[in-house]
Structure formats: structure tokens, C-alpha cells
Design a protein around this nucleic acid. Structure first.
Lengths: 331, 331
DNA sequence: TTGTATGCGTTATCAT
DNA sequence: ATGATAACGCATACAA
């Protein structure tokens, strides 16, 4: 049995109140008893039971993170940054890898409630608005609208889509395709598509929109991308994420299509990892660290003042373009 | 305020005991009251407070995961698998990204204790034996010896080191270098080095052991690898992880050293992600899914019977070789 | 400066 | 078949 307050009290020869006072540094206590208590705690390797503490009305300092998959480098880096910020603020993280599983996300949501988390940062979005509305807990969403009450942090997806087209155009591409996940209504990532469409229009080019399912197995994805490359006349492709872009590069290589001479490609996300291990890929870089920081800041504000009306519904962070070889100008 | 048992009881017009009975499916209750109670719960969106529950002696069904960095694809895949297994067993995961920070790992360990986790799976190892011994909680370690009392799950690192050398040798390499993290005493990963050394000896070749710090920044790592390639006569390199191997490939490319003609390279880990996005890299594949499953199984056993003496101290899972172009035979 | 008693939300024992 | 109540480990109002 783990030692409890009474055990420490007994060992130190004082009352539980005194021990509690020492632990929480509250009220008046003599240095002598303080020392005695610390010695007893040390000897027993005592750790206050934070469950009992929270039951008493104290907050748990627990934050739930709901994301689709940490094996995706983008989410891995984002989650890691979030975890770091939260840790430095005294919060601990319960990680919920919801995948694209509605039921699992629901389960996790219930679990987080049951564990009295102080708040939730949601990056997976399989559930509907009302389910999130019922939670009744501070929530901040990454990159997706969950409800009218839940603030969203994301990068400037529209600017990203626009920038990608501009860069491809400037590099000489005139048949610019869009390749991404099937889009869902009302999500900020749709803005990437909107940016693409609008910008094409200003150039007087026509749009070509193709989708590959995010959840599809990568080898299937590779297969459909190859078919796309064979059947199309694309000389530029805007991908909605880096992994898809890498598959395009791979497909092009297998088909002996030269990048960037015959085909220029941009990714989206710009994780440190892919920047480093795929230095050939141009991409729209999301400010992952800033996003993480902002998510945490906004959540903290909601936790502190849950009833306060939202100052701001959406926070959009700027993107940048990372010029690499896959979009080099070929003369 | 979140609804509590009394609220549900009041709404359903029964006592708290009855509600508790319904929730836990315990004792006798008429279908009629059962329905009433469920209706009330539904209406209030009631979630039992698992803190109060655990306070009463129930287990939290919480498992702590301590790992160095989920941005490393290997850990990302391992953690994701572990999380999946645990979830399907009814456990939730507290993720502790300890980095290589001793203090953070210590903090996390205390936090997990305070949150009454049922057990811990430890994959980061900055702390000493005694700190883990004091925990007094079911722990299973991945790939590292933490104490006499803590079971270890790992792949067969020795076989991995051996296999790598064999494959390089068979592909024609005769100056086979070892490139990895600086090794620490008594850890299973040292076995990779041992396997390398022993196997070289059977071939009558001499050993060349080089280290690059794991925590070093990748661009620094790349730099020192380039220097190594320039100064050495290596025609084969055994890397202790895939990311290092990728840096070697990159360095070779920049130095116009042809792989596999002039230099053959093997990685270690074999994550799905790197297999897919770096199809040129030969590697020793760890059975990640099996490792995850075994970690969870062993932990479950410890949780069920914490006092039972360990049946087995070490569990070694077999590795396989994935033959790709970086070790192709060049005639 | 220190100790006693009560309550947090839930489960379990005992009664009805 | 259902209800009253003690206990879980801790924090705090109140008392000493």
C-alpha cells in the first residue's frame, strides 16, 4: 500500500493537518516541524494522492490531447511541442490517438470527462458539433470548426494555397493540379483549396482537383498518384501535405518524370523532420511551434475564465514558403 | 458544475445507491428503475467521476508511458501501437515525453505516482536504477535494464548487429564501420555493437567504431558524418538507427560517393514510415507491433500479480533484414 | 504554531 | 429491490 498522509503524520509525530500545511506551504509552521515532516516524506517516498486532492475541488492539471495519429510527422511535432509547453506550465498530458475512428474519439471524450481534465485540445475531428458542445469543458480546436463556442487555432490555410500556386506559377508551371484529402464542409483546410482556386483564376488557368483519401493505405495512394501522373498533363502539383508530396516525387521517379524539369511539386506542413530528411521538397511551412504555443495560451485563458465570452473565434498564423529543388525554375 | 451521482439520483427519484448499482451493474434492480436512471444520466450527460471512484480503491486504468521523443518515427510507431493495445484493454495513456532530461523524467515519474497510474511502460532512461526501484509500481522497460525487478522487452539486438554485418559482407563490403550512439553500460542496445564486433571477428575483419550523439542536432550529425566519410575507407556502414543511416546516405550523395557501389549502408528499426518514404534503405527491422503487444501483456501480468516473482526477466523478439538498394551487391 | 472535524463523489456494507 | 451511511485520502474551517 502506498503511504498516505496519516502515515507521514505518524512517522513525523504530528497531525495530518500539519503535514498538509507543509506540503502546500500554507499557514504557519515552525522550521523544526517542517524538517521533521520532510524527513518523514522522504523516508516513505511519499507522493500526495492527486486524485484525493482533485476530489476536494483542486484542479487536476490534466489536459487531454485528441489527435488522429502521432505517426504522422506533423502531428508528432505538434503534439510534442504542445506537450512541452503544457509541461512547463505545470500540466500533464493525456494522449488520445483517436485515428479516424468516431467511436474511439467518443470513448476518449468520455474518458477525459471522467478523469476531470482541466481542458482539451482537439485535433481529430470525427465527431459532430453537438457532441463537442455537450462536453461543457474548456476546449480549443486545431484547424477545425467544432462549434460556435470553441476557438480555432490554425495556420493561414488560404494564404498557403495561394502561395503554393504562386510559387509553382513563378517557377514556370501552367497546368497546376491540386492533390489532397477529400474536403469536408466548413473546415479551415478547405481554405487551402479556396486559395488554390482563386489564385489560379487570377492567372487565367483552369483548375484540376484530385483527391486521395488520407486514411487510404500509402501503397494504394502511390498507385492512384501514378495513374494520375500518367493520365494528366500536369506540370505542377499543389499537395495538401508533405507525405502526399513525397509520394508524388516517388511516383514521378518511377515513371521517369523529371522533377522539377517536367513537374514541379509543393508540399504542405514543413515539419523539421521532412525538411531534414527530404531536402529536395519545397513546401508551405506551418509555424508548428507558434501553433502549439497559441493553442496552449488560448486553452489556459479558457480554463481561467470558462464563462468569459470568446474574445476571438479564430486565430490564423502565417505560413512561409520553403524553396527547395522540387519547385526550382527549369530554363 | 458537472452533474454528480446525487443529481442523477434526484432526477430519477431514487437513491444514490441505486444509481451506483445501475452504473456498475451490481446487485438487484428492476428494469423500470434501471430505465429511469439511464434516462436521467442521458439527460444530464452524466459521467462518473473516476477520481472519486479510484479514491475508493478502484484502479484508475491509467498507464504512464515514458519515452524520449515521439518525433522519432520509431518511438512514434511504438507509442501508437502501445496506445492502441492499451486502449483495447480498457486502459488510457498518460504520455510523458521525457526527452533526454533527467529532471523531467523524475518529475514525470512523481506525477504518475501522484495520479495513481496502474503501471508504467518506460522507454526513456535518463534515471538511475534506484529511482525506478523506489517507485513501487508495476513497470516494464523497453530496451533497457532499469533494475533487477523490472522486466525488459526488446528486439534481439545482438542478432541485429550480426545480421547487419553479414548482409554487408555478403554484399561485398570489407571495411565495415559501426556508427551509433555512444553506448552506455549494460543496455540491450550495446548488444548491437557486440553482434557487430563478434561477427567481424569471424570474418577476420577489423572493427571501426564511431559514435554520433543521439541528442546532437541533425545538421551537426550530418557534418560529422561527412567528415567520417571523407577520412575513412569504409565501404560498409552499420548504423544503429534508420535516421542516422539516412544522414549517411545524404552525406554520401553530397560527397558524390555512390551507394551501393562504393558504400553500402544498413539502418536499424525499420519503421513503416521509413520503409515507405525511403525505399532505398536496407535495414534491420524491429517487430514494433509485437514489441508493443508484449510490453502490454507483461505489464498487465505485473498489474494483476504485482508480488509474483518475475517469470522471465528479458523478452527478446526476433529481427529481420529488409533488403533494399543501399546494400545491393555491386559487381 | 498545531490539532479536530467535516466534506469532496463514489462504492460497499448493512439494513429495510 | 432499494435506501442510509461509512470509508477512500486529502484540504480546510474552526478550535485550541
Amino acid at each position: 500500500m502506498r503511504p498516505k498522509l496519516t502515515d507521514v503524520a505518524k512517522k513525523a509525530g504530528v497531525s495530518v493537518t500539519t503535514v498538509s500545511r507543509v506540503i502546500n506551504d500554507y499557514g504557519y509552521i515552525s522550521q523544526k516541524t517542517r524538517d521533521k515532516v520532510f524527513a518523514a516524506m522522504e523516508e516513505l517516498n511519499y507522493q500526495p494522492n492527486s486524485l484525493a486532492r482533485s476530489l476536494h475541488g483542486k484542479s487536476t492539471n490534466l489536459v487531454g490531447l485528441i489527435f488522429p495519429a502521432i505517426t504522422n510527422p506533423f502531428f508528432a511535432e505538434l503534439v510534442e511541442k504542445i506537450e512541452q509547453k503544457l509541461f512547463s506550465e505545470g500540466y500533464k498530458v493525456i494522449l488520445c490517438n483517436a485515428g479516424s475512428d468516431k467511436e474511439k474519439e467518443r470513448e476518449y471524450l468520455k474518458m477525459l470527462l471522467a478523469n476531470q481534465v482541466d481542458g482539451i485540445i482537439a485535433g481529430a475531428h470525427n465527431l459532430g458539433i453537438d457532441e463537442y458542445n455537450r462536453v461543457g469543458l474548456p476546449i480549443v480546436s486545431f484547424d477545425r470548426k467544432l462549434s460556435e463556442q470553441i476557438p480555432i487555432v490554425s495556420c493561414d490555410n488560404y494564404a498557403g494555397g495561394k502561395l503554393a500556386v504562386q510559387e509553382l506559377y513563378n517557377a514556370g508551371a501552367r497546368h497546376i493540379y491540386f492533390l489532397g484529402n477529400p474536403h469536408q464542409q466548413g473546415n479551415p483546410t478547405d481554405q487551402r483549396l479556396a486559395g488554390y482556386c482563386d489564385t489560379l483564376e487570377t492567372y487565367g488557368l483552369s483548375r484540376h482537383i484530385h483527391t486521395v483519401s488520407f486514411s487510404e493505405s500509402p501503397s494504394l495512394k502511390l498507385f492512384s498518384i501514378k495513374r494520375l501522373l500518367q493520365e494528366s498533363v500536369a506540370d505542377g502539383i499543389v499537395c495538401t501535405d508533405d507525405l502526399t508530396a513525397l509520394l508524388v516525387l516517388q511516383a514521378a521517379k518511377e515513371l521517369a518524370i523529371k522533377v522539377p524539369e517536367q513537374l514541379k511539386v509543393t508540399g504542405f506542413d514543413g515539419t523539421t523532420q521532412i525538411q531534414l530528411y527530404h531536402p529536395e521538397l519545397s513546401t508551405i511551412v506551418q509555424p508548428i511551434s507558434d501553433i502549439a504555443e497559441l493553442l496552449v495560451e488560448v486553452l489556459k485563458a479558457r480554463i481561467k475564465q470558462p464563462t468569459e465570452p470568446l474574445k476571438q473565434m479564430q486565430y490564423k498564423l502565417p505560413v512561409t514558403f520553403l524553396q527547395r529543388n522540387s519547385t526550382s525554375r527549369s530554363n
